[in-house]
């Protein structure tokens, strides 16, 4: 079933420069794990942010769960955003607050203004947050302040904050770009589990082609604001990679899994 559909989406930040997104169309089925790859500045981040309208569209149409998002009013937009989680490269947690407080921030979109201001969460919400924290192996840090955590732990808090929203879709904006390889693997494994066990749709922008190949059901390659590849990981050949990045795949030190089976 189609969860998300983009039709001829364009985004101009300024009329003087080339558009960040030019005529992008694709649709996403429920439960898919999709990686978005492409060089820096190719529009990956903009693409993700148009979906929850953190970036406004210049043209085109986005439909999420049967609702056209571009003309939503303020309260409807809040409702839309509460169904879409987001994970960031720099985690974007409130550093001075504890893990549990940060996780519960994911519930703000479901609450009245006053309850949110006072930070009064229901017992059910707290129990759910606790379950998610345990699932992500963060139980011993639950009352620690987030500035005392490592990068990998912070990103797990970020995932927990997204999960507590009960989202249908999670947008991940370069979730492992600031992490060391072992933390990156842990995070990607969690994302894979979320996709497989909870059936949540994931749209992940990545810089590492081999990781994209290993984890995702489908890869979208973006270059200069247009989609240049959209298909299964095993359809991504050397030629297609060099089309996405504008360099020969061998020069880019990308392992496509032909020699060692590393990315299979």
């Amino acid at each position: 079933m189609t969860l998300l559909e983009l039709k001829n989406v364009t985004k101009h930040y300024s009329p003087a420069v080339a558009p960040a997104l030019a005529d992008i169309s694709f649709s996403v089925n429920e439960g898919e794990f999709i990686s978005v790859i492409g060089p820096s500045g190719s529009g990956k981040t903009t693409l993700l942010r148009t979906i929850n309208r953190m970036v406004e569209l210049s043209g085109g149409e986005i439909t999420f769960a049967g609702v056209s998002i571009s003309r939503l009013r303020k309260s409807e937009l809040r409702k839309l955003r509460s169904k879409i989680g987001m994970i960031f490269q720099h985690y974007n947690l409130v550093d001075r607050m504890s893990v549990i407080e940060n996780v519960l921030h994911g519930r703000l979109g479901h609450k009245s203004t006053l309850a949110g201001i006072l930070g009064s969460y229901t017992l059910a919400e707290k129990e759910q947050a606790l379950r998610i924290i345990q699932m992500l192996g963060l139980d011993e840090y639950i009352n620690k302040r987030c500035d005392q955590l490592s990068g990998g732990q912070k990103q797990r808090v970020g995932i927990a904050r997204a999960l507590v929203q009960n989202p249908k879709l999670i947008l991940c904006d370069e979730p492992i770009a600031s992490l060391d390889p072992s933390s990156a693997k842990i995070i990607m494994d969690y994302l894979k589990n979320i996709s497989r066990d909870l059936g949540i749709t994931l749209l992940v922008s990545l810089h590492q082609v081999d990781i994209a190949l290993k984890y995702s059901d489908r890869v979208i390659g973006v270059n200069r604001g247009t989609i240049v590849f959209d298909g299964k990981p095993d359809e991504l050949t050397r030629e297609r990679v060099s089309e996405i990045y504008g360099f020969d795949a061998g020069d880019l030190m990308i392992n496509l899994g032909e020699s060692e089976g590393y990315a299979s």
């Binding site: 974007n92 001075r96 703000l108 930070g119």
Partner: peptide, 21 residues
Amino acid sequence: EALRATGANWWQVVFQAVIPS
């Protein structure tokens, strides 16, 4: 931005993130 993306409104962001920080 992260809190806005969860659907939090301006007042919630102010009292849950800006002032505590």
